[in-house]
Each structure stands twice: as structure tokens, then as C-alpha cells.
Amino acid sequence: MNPSFRTSQHPTWHRVRKIRGTSDKVLEIGTGTGYSTSLMCQRLGQEAITSIEYDQEVAVRARKAIAEAGYAPTLVVGDGLLDYDENAEYDQLIATCSVRTIPPSWMWQVRVGGTITTPMWGWMGGVAFAHLTLTEDGTASGRFLKDALYFMTARSHLPPSRPPMVSDIGEARPSRIDPSILSDETALWVAQLAVPRAQHSWREDTTFLVDVSTGSRANTRPDPAGGWTVYQHGPIKLWDEVEEAILTWQGAGCPHQSGFGLTVTRREQRVWLGGPGGPSWNLPA
């Protein structure tokens, strides 16, 4: 084995260590450099590993690097968000790209009792690391992990182009929260749950949100008299939704993402706080 693959410091190694047993079949979404692919080959055996890479040039380089490390797993050039059933059912699906929602095809390719482990990233830049187990009724559920781990986002999950941010349009009122709270990683992720189609930016002391699909906008800035003023325009009151989510999270003690979980069914993908019966938000279809 190439010595460069022996280190336990690389973040992907912590995912590899979660795999139980040497007979597990793993589908990796995103071969990348081939580093984590080689780690899994060394741990589980090359016959157990199938890895899919979207970019053909990246796949060629990865194949060469993996071969130089002494391994020959199943390597595929294609879209890992779609079906690849050749070696299914898989015991583990591990994504080395970030996704906005769980692709339905992943649910079909993992056996009952198998797991899906993936970083999740949204259009406001909030991230969480999901670890789900597939159940007999075809659903998957689990908690987000404590690891602060994410990768390049799958191309089809990237946001649309964002229009210029415009200030002070629409109805004005006092804000119930300090917009600077969105500089906290977990708070940003919670806000994103409330308005998953919105994009977020700052300009000097003003916080902007815009939902391209509906034309809804909001901006929040300090009020000279104290506090903050929010302006909202469009069919969705974006800041109203953000406030409610942040206040709910604060009321629960401001837990990390690992205090939340995700349940995926054929009809919806629902993030819940505390337990499946707690406050929840649906991810976009």
C-alpha cells in the first residue's frame, strides 16, 4: 500500500472507520482523488468497493492513483445521484460530495439495515452530516453527526443564479432576533431549514435573503433607535420563517446539528429537532 494512504488524520478516514465487518459492500458517491476509495479498499477489500465519479477527467486521475496504491475496485464514470444497480444491494452508501436532499435512488440501492452517510449543504451555506439507516418500510432515518465535514456540492444541487440584492423593499417592522446570529454555523443551518429555497448574503451591516423561485426578499439592518429593522417583500415572509425557526432552536437550548435528525420517505424529507415527534421542517422536494 502507498504510505500516503496510511494516515488516520484525513477527514474521510473517520467515515471509513464506521463501516462494520469486512464483507460489507460500499457504494461511494464521488471518487475524487481516489484517496478515500483506497482507504476503503485497504480496510474492506477491493471487491467490496464500488465508486462513482461524475467528472471523466477526475475519474481518469483517480483510477491511476488507486492503481498505483495497489487496488482495483469497481470504478464507474457517471452521475452518482442516479441509479447504479450492478453491485447492489449495498450495505453502506457513503457520499464524498454534499447534497441538498437525499436522492431517491440512494434509498433503492441500500439494503434494509444498511446506511447512508452524506454531508448535506443548502443554498444559504448551512451544512450538516447525516447518517441514516434504511428500514423495512422503505424509509430511512437517523441523526446528524457531530463531525463538521462537507465536500464540494453535487452540481445538480447547486443554487440558481442570484439576482442583485436590493435594500429596504416592502413592509418594515422590528426584527425579533439579531441577524448577526446567522454567523453561527448551526444558527445558519436552522435558518436554512425554515427557508430552504432562499439564498443569503451580507453587505456591510445588512443581512439579505432572496428566494429566486418566488421573488420573495428580506433584508435586516440596525435601527438607529436600537434593535434591527426588517423589510420583507413577496409571497413568502422569509424573515418571519427564519425568526420562528431560530426562536424554536433557542428555546431548545441552541443544540448543535447533532441534536437534530432526518427522516426520509417517498413523500417527504423531514428534519426534526430532539426526536421524530419534535418541531420539524421539510426539505425541498
Rank of each mutant, 00 (worst) to 15 (best):
R17P: 01
S23L: 07
T37D: 03
M40Y: 08
C41K: 05
G45C: 08
I49A: 01
I49D: 07
I49H: 00
S51K: 05
R63N: 12
K64G: 01
K64T: 15
A65H: 11
E68G: 08
A69W: 05
G70L: 04
A72I: 00
A72C: 06
L75N: 04
L81N: 10
L82H: 09
Y84S: 13
D85T: 15
Q92G: 03
A95Y: 14
I102C: 10
P104C: 08
S105V: 01
W123Q: 11
M124R: 04
V127S: 11
V127M: 13
V127G: 07
A128N: 13
F129V: 07
T133M: 10
L134M: 14
E136T: 06
A140K: 11
R143I: 00
R143G: 12
A148C: 04
M152F: 09
S156G: 12
L158E: 15
L158W: 05
P160V: 13
D168H: 13
D168L: 09
E171Q: 15
A172H: 03
R173W: 05
S175E: 06
S175V: 04
I177A: 02
D178E: 07
P179A: 04
D184L: 05
W189I: 00
V190N: 05
V190I: 15
Q192V: 01
L193D: 09
A194Y: 06
V195I: 12
V195S: 01
Q199I: 05
E204N: 13
T206E: 06
F208M: 01
F208E: 03
V210F: 13
D211A: 05
V212R: 12
P222M: 10
A225F: 08
W228A: 00
E241K: 15
G251D: 10
G253C: 05
C254Q: 10
P255I: 12
H256G: 02
G259E: 04
G259R: 10
G261K: 11
L262H: 11
T263K: 13
V264W: 11
E268P: 03
Q269H: 06
L273R: 06
S280M: 03
